[in-house]
C-alpha cells in the first residue's frame, strides 16, 4: 500500500491542497497526518475540516505542539507563533478544537511509529537536529521506521544493529529502500511552512510492500497563501517567509 505522510500543515490551505492532489495523482491510498494542523497560516478551519474528513475515512493523525496550544495556554511559544495561535483559537469552532484536543501523541501501525516531534519523550516536543537526537529517538522504540516532523527540514537517519548511525538529506523524488536490517527515522519537511530553503510544500510517500520512501515537493500558490496571512492581520514575517522557504 502507498502511504502519503504530511506534517506541519500549519493552516496553509494552498500548500495542503497541492500536496493532496499530487499524492493522489501518484496513487496514495492511505493518508498519515503528523500534526501541527494549525498555527502560522490563515486557513485553519479548512485544514482541520479536511483532516477530520480524512481521519473519518481511515487516515491516521497525531497531535503537534501547535494543536495542543490551541486548547492549552500552558504551551510556550515565540511571540509570532503565539499571536497566530491566539488568532487561530478564535477561528475554530468547538468540534474542530475537540478534534485537535483528542489527537493521540503517537500511533503505531505495523512496525511503523508516527509521532510529531520524536519518540523518546513526545510530550516535550524536542527537535531532531542531529544524529545524536535521532539516536535518542530510535533507541526509545522497537519500530522499524519512525515518521516525525516538527523541525520543518527533511532528513533521513538510520541505526544499524551495532548502533552505528547514518544521516542523510533526502533527494527529492529519489526513492530510498528502508532496509529491514536497521531502524530508520524519517524526518519530514513541512507542508505549510518549509524551512529548508525550498518554498515548495514537502511531504513523503511510503510504499509498505517495497519499503521505499520518497520525499516529494509540491509547488503551490505561495502568493495567495501569503496574501491571506497579511489580509488577516497576522504577523507579516509569517507571510514573507513562505516565499523564501525558511
Amino acid at each position: 500500500m502507498l502511504l502519503a505522510v504530511f506534517s506541519d500543515i500549519h493552516g496553509n490551505r494552498q500548500a495542503f491542497e497541492a500536496c493532496l492532489k499530487m499524492a493522489r495523482a501518484k496513487g496514495a491510498e492511505r493518508f498519515i497526518l503528523l500534526g501541527d494542523f494549525v498555527g502560522y497560516g490563515a486557513d485553519p478551519e479548512w485544514v482541520v475540516d479536511t483532516a477530520m474528513e480524512l481521519v473519518a475515512r481511515g487516515a491516521i493523525a497525531v497531535r503537534g505542539n501547535h494543536d495542543q496550544a490551541v486548547n492549552s495556554s500552558a504551551e510556550t511559544m515565540n511571540a509570532e507563533a503565539q499571536v497566530a495561535i491566539e488568532w487561530t483559537r478564535g477561528r475554530l469552532d468547538r468540534a474542530q478544537r475537540r478534534f485537535l484536543a483528542e489527537l493521540p501523541m503517537l500511533m503505531e501501525d505495523d512496525g511503523r511509529l508516527f509521532v510529531h516531534s520524536e519518540a523518546s519523550s513526545p510530550q516535550r516536543w524536542h527537535y531532531v537536529r542531529s544524529t545524536a537526537d535521532a539516536a535518542k529517538s530510535l533507541i526509545a522504540t522497537p519500530a522499524h521506521i519512525t515518521f516525525c516532523g516538527h523541525i520543518h527540514r527533511p532528513a533521513l537517519y538510520s541505526m544499524s544493529v551495532t548502533a552505528k548511525m547514518t544521516s542523510f538529506v533526502p533527494k527529492t523524488d529519489v526513492s530510498v529502500q528502508l532496509l529491514r536490517g536497521r531502524q530508520w527515522l524519517a524526518v519530514l519537511g513541512s507542508v505549510g511552512q518549509p524551512r529548508d530553503g525550498d518554498p515548495s510544500a514537502s511531504f513523503v510517500l511510503f510504499d509498505t510492500v517495497s519499503c521505499q520512501i520518497t520525499y516529494c515537493r509540491a509547488p503551490y500558490d505561495v502568493a495567495t497563501a501569503a496574501g491571506r496571512i497579511r489580509d488577516n492581520g497576522l504577523p507579516h514575517w509569517l507571510a514573507d517567509r513562505l516565499s523564501q522557504g525558511r
Binding site: F168, K171, V174
Partner: peptide
C-alpha cells in the same frame, strides 16, 4: 551513491 544514505559513513 550521491542520492542514497551512505551506510558506511560512520561504520
Amino acid at each position: 551513491h550521491n542520492h542514497l544514505p551512505d551506510l558506511l559513513q560512520e561504520e
